[in-house]
Design a protein around this nucleic acid. Sequence first.
RNA 1: GGAGACUUCGCCUAGUCCGGUCUAUGGCGCCGCACUGCUAAUGCGGUUGGGGUUUUAUAGCCCCUCCCGGGUUCGAAUCCCGGAGUCUCCGCCA
Length: 436
Amino acid sequence: MGYPDEVRAGAPVGSAIVIDLRLLREEPDRIRASQRLRGESPSLVDDLLRADERRRTATQRFEAVRAEQRSLGRQVPKSTGDERAVLLARTKVLAVDVKAAEAATTEAEQALRAAHLAVPNVVEDGVPPGGEDDFVVLREVGDIPRIENPKDHLEIGEGLRAIDTERGAKVSGSRFYFLTGVGALLQLAMLQMAIQQAVEHGFTPSITPSLVKPEAMEGTGFLGAHASEIYRLEADDLYLVGTSEVPLAAYHSNEILDLTNPERFAGWSSCYRREAGSYGKDVRGILRVHQFDKVEMFSFCRPEQARAEHLRLLAMEEEMLAKVEVPYRVIDVAAGDLGSSATRKFDCEAWVPSQGRYREVTSSSNCTTFQARRLNIRYRDEDGKTQTAATLNGTLATTRWLIPILENHQQPDGSVRVPKALQPHLGGRDVLEPSR
RNA sequence: GGAGACUUCGCCUAGUCCGGUCUAUGGCGCCGCACUGCUAAUGCGGUUGGGGUUUUAUAGCCCCUCCCGGGUUCGAAUCCCGGAGUCUCCGCCA
């Protein structure tokens, strides 16, 4: 799955990239170091700088030839006779040069973009080195409940007639499910509560498209190493989103924003993931599925505000987790496990009694200018100059949350206690029992 | 799905037939100044945007930009082809 096709499909090229290249030129060593932390080749940076230089040269040549052509072209209408014939002959030659120079520029720009897309975001200072298992636990919150022989969420869910994975498999295959009765109601209540909290904190609630064009996928960094995770509709050249982060990021593509204050969205969408390469992993229940629903936070802000915004999103997640009364811990994800777009990532992991361990339920990434550069999202600074914006995202609630909610609040009789904050969203009921 | 109309510098709009100071018209809005107890009104001036370059700065210079991408041409907002989007009507359908 290469990007040149996507580039031709209309992804923004050139200008916005160069702004950040200026920064790259100043600190290439910093970026090489970051590359090593991620376990990727530092030479990508040199490829990028070379491509940048090539593009500059090509552009300068094109502009020079073009300027001459225009200048001569302006004289043609005023000229007559022999003078005109000479001019026409000269411009005829120039036309060929211009065309060649333009082609060279276009090619150089595409090469630059390709080199650019290959370079992951620079890792933020303080990120733990290492891979998947090298995260640092920042804190553990809440008391782990003592439950004798805890049932897992699927057993509880089936008892409540809330989760039906057998029929999910019958209708759509493995890793699909039906939420029915109190299961459906619980999910709607949880997502509604998430939206309400987001609105209270000034986020704009949004219901987003689930199908997006290639440039939206490319721009958010999802067609990189994890392209095989993405569903693609061949007939229409559209992708099914794995998170509303994608449409929300692309929402402001090719725009210049007023980012005096950060712009914040809470997107509700169904999400689709192929889960390729996770065969045999987490096959039971709804922990790892092909389709789920999610409320995702997304912020556009100035780069200097991004760290504070990141902590803000994390605080939102913790507020939600507190409302569903589930014990959790916060981890600082290690450099090798960041994904190409993030400079830093905090995950919240909820306690899952049946497994006796924490499982990821939220993930919030600071992408700084990585996505905005690719999607050409800018803002105007005090001097009126355009600068690349920063983007951040974080999970506010998803279907997976049903697992810790059901398991941590299960009762010996098979019913499930409803956390207080959720009750108003469930018509006031304080316990889940089988129903229609 | 069928037919037609349309897309111009924040918004509206002239220009497209008949290619060349269109380096885009006018209005609204906005900014500045003047006048007037204040406001309003009026008058004058300014105002497409993006990138590069240069300067202490002001200012300037160059390229790109008339939905997007190709083509024709010495030269394209204008002509040709392809695509996207918007609207209207018809058909169909949650």
